[in-house]
Design a protein around this nucleic acid. Structure first.
Lengths: 104, 104
DNA sequence: TTATCATTTGAATAATTGTTCATATGTTGA
DNA sequence: TCAACATATGAACAATTATTCAAATGATAA
């Protein structure tokens, strides 16, 4: 795992801190975290996620839209289905470090 | 069809994911992120933070309590003042990676 | 085209939450 | 002891937001 412990904040200004809070707000919902968790190892279509989390496709779609806007997930169409996947390793790192914190 | 419920993503169970969302919820507020930012390089007492962020000590104290409960900050008393500081490098890492994500 | 499946969208409701204000607690020095 | 300062707490209000429901869009095959 990457070690960011010596990184500086590199002069984050007020606007950037605001955006940062908005980013974590996206992680800060149990439904969205469960969706990200479902996508951690593999891509899934909306119905997969809805089935797995026992939610309506509509509710899942609403949250996927938010995750996409924050660039935490990407998607690709395959016929009628749209598959979603984690956007990059930042997402995995943030989740992994969060879990480390909880498990201490 | 796709069923991920019994194999992947068992790195965290439902309860842990709920706690994880609660953790990120703490990061997901601009006031608290600004407080963490203020504490990134040095410890501060409540009044320092209130002055720096142009907030009332009461509002700062409310948020510091939440940060403390999530173990994102620690504190120590020095006379009348109570100094707060970032609890550990997980906090710095999460902030640093979040900023990286924004800056991409 | 039409039917059907998969997903998205918009509006409304319900629940959560950050700030303010007033008050309380805790610490120090006179 | 008291007074002054620093911080914490509780209640109430205002703003935000996740889910539901109904309807719309997009894609495929007959």
């Amino acid at each position: 795992m990457n070690n960011y412990s010596n990184d500086k904040m590199n002069f984050a200004d007020e606007n950037e801190l605001y955006d940062l809070a908005e980013l974590f707000k996206v992680f800060g919902d149990s439904t969205r975290i469960r969706i990200l968790s479902a996508l951690y190892g593999r891509e899934c279509c909306v119905q997969d996620i809805a089935d797995g989390l026992k939610m309506t496709p509509s509710a899942v779609s609403h949250q996927l839209k938010i995750l996409k806007q924050s660039k935490l997930v990407g998607n690709r169409r395959e016929g009628k289905q749209i598959f979603y996947f984690l956007a990059d390793d930042h997402v995995r790192s943030i989740i992994a470090i969060g879990l480390e914190h909880l498990r201490e």
